[in-house]
């Protein structure tokens, strides 16, 4: 009974930390920013559609999807980094760690809170995309965006635990994100005339370690409607596995930290 009660308390603390994180999102007017990104994305999509002579819907949905995907990643990365820096500056982290919960409980509470915000962002953006794409393909895009944002949240937490400051942490998050999305293109370029063995092996190594984000949240699904269950299965499997890896790395950093 005592063990059960102890576990319940831990879960209660985690939920409380998650809820505080969500409140932080609401009170820092994150919703307003997300709606602004959505508005700009829709305006850009209609503008691009007005320029196009053919494939108007395809161009609109490709522009909207690309903009919202990048916008969501930037908004979430900056929000997580800022929120976590504030947590350090306001000594909220110290307060949380003084409570009878393990560091992992604090980490997963924060992760849960940020994930709920990521879910709302992904839902809002998916609704916008659905105006231009088939329902199932839009839903697949939305699920994929949610998993992509989960990885960004975990990566941002890890980078902030490592660097403690926003500029280097943000630079690292963006570097990893851009590499993860373009490493396949790098491999493709490496097979061309500038074939350097050592460089190619290095790029192969990067592709092996990084998550295959080029297979996430693809405009292709919205434009051609060719996303399927295999894509969904890959996104979920890759998302869960890499989230576990990033969480483990962040926990190693958090447990080793001397406050």
């Amino acid at each position: 009974m005592g063990v059960m009660e102890h576990r319940f308390n831990r879960l209660g603390w985690m939920t409380a930390i998650a809820w505080v994180t969500v409140l932080e999102g609401i009170r820092t007017r994150l919703v307003g920013l997300v709606v602004a990104v959505l508005g700009v994305g829709l305006t850009l999509a209609f503008f691009a559609g007005a320029l196009a002579v053919m494939e108007v819907r395809e161009i609109q949905v490709a522009v909207l999807g690309t903009f919202l995907r990048l916008g969501a990643v930037l908004v979430m990365a900056l929000f997580v980094l800022n929120a976590q820096v504030r947590e350090l500056d306001d000594k909220g982290l110290y307060l949380a760690l003084s409570l009878p919960i393990p560091r992992a409980g604090y980490f997963f509470g924060r992760l849960m809170g940020f994930s709920m915000i990521a879910l709302v962002v992904a839902l809002l953006f998916t609704v916008a995309v659905l105006f231009f794409s088939p329902v199932l393909q839009g839903a697949l895009w939305g699920v994929s965006l949610f998993f992509e944002l989960l990885l960004i949240v975990a990566l941002a937490l890890l980078c902030l635990f490592t660097f403690n400051q926003v500029p280097p942490a943000f630079a690292m998050v963006m570097a990893v994100y851009i590499l993860a999305r373009s490493v396949i293109a790098l491999q493709w370029v490496g097979q061309g005339p500038i074939n350097v063995w050592l460089m190619n092996r290095f790029i192969d190594g990067l592709a092996f370690v990084l998550p295959a984000l080029d297979r996430f949240t693809q405009s292709e699904w919205l434009v051609y409607g060719n996303g399927g269950w295999q894509d969904l299965a890959f996104v979920v499997a890759q998302g869960v596995l890499y989230l576990a890896l990033l969480s483990a790395a962040a926990l190693i950093d958090l447990y080793r930290k001397n406050f």
Partner: peptide
Amino acid sequence: GVLRLLALGDPVAMNRL
């Protein structure tokens, strides 16, 4: 090669842009 790199893994959108 460069266009593919700039596409950040999303060549369909890059094609349109």
